[in-house]
Nucleic acid binder design. Structure first.
Lengths: 126, 126
DNA sequence: TATCTAGTGAGAATGCGTTATCATTAGGTC
DNA sequence: GACCTAATGATAACGCATTCTCACTAGATA
């Protein structure tokens, strides 16, 4: 029997924050968002909830270069991210460049890829 | 007058390690490589040399998701990286997917991109 | 409602890559 | 060779995201 997992407002707030977001959130962003539903929620609780959600496959972590891990719900279609250099926000991007396999060196087995676009988001361009 | 920079075997060893490498090296990998030319070289010296080389534009740092920064000489053509999930080594990859601009959301200004391929390198496939 | 125990909040502790400190060494120049 | 001072090596200190500790709170079940 696996360890019992109880329903708590804190866990619900964390998962809800991720479902509301249209972009992957960092632990502290999740903490901020969850605190709006559950004032006083501790950062440790956020980390604990994220750990169990990731372990349970409901949430995946997204790591962009030079940044702390971010989290998003697991049931999104394959996608990539756009990182605004001005405001630092990360956006989801649909689509995927084709034929990446041809870029891999001969004899290498390509199993996955990660693409990050950099620039300025609509708000910062204006 | 800018601060004088002296030629030392340690600095030469750091730069040489980067020129020899066909892949971006982490600080500790550079430390190991440089120690073969200059036994006893300190890790702090490696960091100092890297800092001045990056500041001087001779070396650039490459940050792959979830990893510590790596360094490579600055005069390489635009390229990406292949990260072997088995041995952890990073390889340079020529070429670049076309038409990345069409992936950016409408109204966003695309200024750059980073692509990392994951899989197993030739040695680990065998 | 009584009971059991997972979950929580606060803050201390940890891990680790990187940087600062400082006494000593050794380039550069005359 | 003498002198000035940047560079070095060893190691302590730092920053900071994440995890642990522990007393307390509150789901779940009967």
């Amino acid at each position: 029997m696996a360890t019992e997992t109880r329903k708590t407002p804190q866990r619900a707030a964390v998962l809800d924050a991720l479902h509301q977001a249209r972009a992957p959130l960092s632990a502290s962003e999740i903490h901020d968002a969850a605190a709006r539903r559950v004032p006083g929620i501790g950062l440790a609780t956020v980390y604990r909830a994220l750990k169990s959600l990731v372990d349970g496959g409901e949430v995946v972590s997204v790591v962009l270069p030079g940044d702390t891990p971010r989290f998003e719900v697991a049931d999104l279609a394959h996608h990539h991210h756009f990182h605004c250099r001005e405001c630092g926000k990360v956006f989801e991007v649909e689509g995927c460049p084709p034929n990446l396999a041809r870029l891999a060196p001969r004899g290498f087995a390509l199993e996955g890829h990660e693409l990050v676009l950099y620039g300025r988001c609509m708000g910062c361009v204006a």
